[in-house]
């Protein structure tokens, strides 16, 4: 069976830590060492990790704003087209383009488009839906949903070198270090 072009055999290295403090410290050291393409997996959200990894700046927010503004505009022109161009009706002598009456629908369209932008933007940026992930091949990774904390340095990071990075992770006192296959 043909598996296509040869894939890089390594996706990254993942280190397992036993508690909150250990992963926070390890992540800080990893960032300080210059690694950018890192990912942390914890059983519950850790605010400190967001700070260290600079994940507070959320690009989804911008997508939502654009979605909302688009919805607002679409909501207006939809009604404007219907009541001025397509099917003009005289309602109590009001002008055809009675924009105050359009505002509730414009608002609803804003919310609708913003919500879809939020959902779709989040999915696309997280590369979801994704039924499987190479990390799941690691036996112990299932504890990430229970009581263990994982730090992964990905192979695409410019500083990544298999042996040096493994040694770097070993020095952070993890429970163990595993290779993530691509």
């Amino acid at each position: 069976m043909n598996h296509g072009p040869a894939r890089p055999e390594l996706r990254g290295l993942v280190a397992e830590f036993e508690n909150e403090e250990a992963i926070v410290e390890a992540t800080q050291k990893t960032v300080d060492a210059g690694y950018h393409h890192i990912e942390t997996y914890t059983p519950y959200p850790l605010d400190e990790l967001l700070d260290i990894q600079h994940l507070h700046k959320n690009k989804v927010a911008l997508v939502i704003l654009i979605g909302g503004l688009t919805g607002c505009t679409v909501g207006f022109f939809m009604q404007w087209f219907a009541s001025v161009i397509h099917y003009p009706i005289n309602v109590g002598g009001r002008p055809l383009n009675s924009w105050p009456a359009f505002i509730p629908v414009m608002f609803e369209c804003t919310v609708l488009f913003a919500s879809f932008a939020a959902l779709i933007g989040m999915m696309v940026m997280n590369k979801l839906p994704r039924p499987n992930h190479p990390l799941f091949d690691i036996e112990r990774f299932r504890y990430a949903t229970q009581d263990r904390f994982f730090l992964c340095i990905e192979a695409e990071d410019p500083y990544f070198e298999k042996d040096a990075t493994r040694q770097f992770l070993e020095e952070l006192n993890p429970h163990e270090v595993n290779e993530v296959e691509a």
Partner: peptide
């Protein structure tokens, strides 16, 4: 608690 852990980090 939040401030302590932030200071540590």
């Amino acid at each position: 608690k939040a401030q302590v852990s932030k200071a540590k980090a």
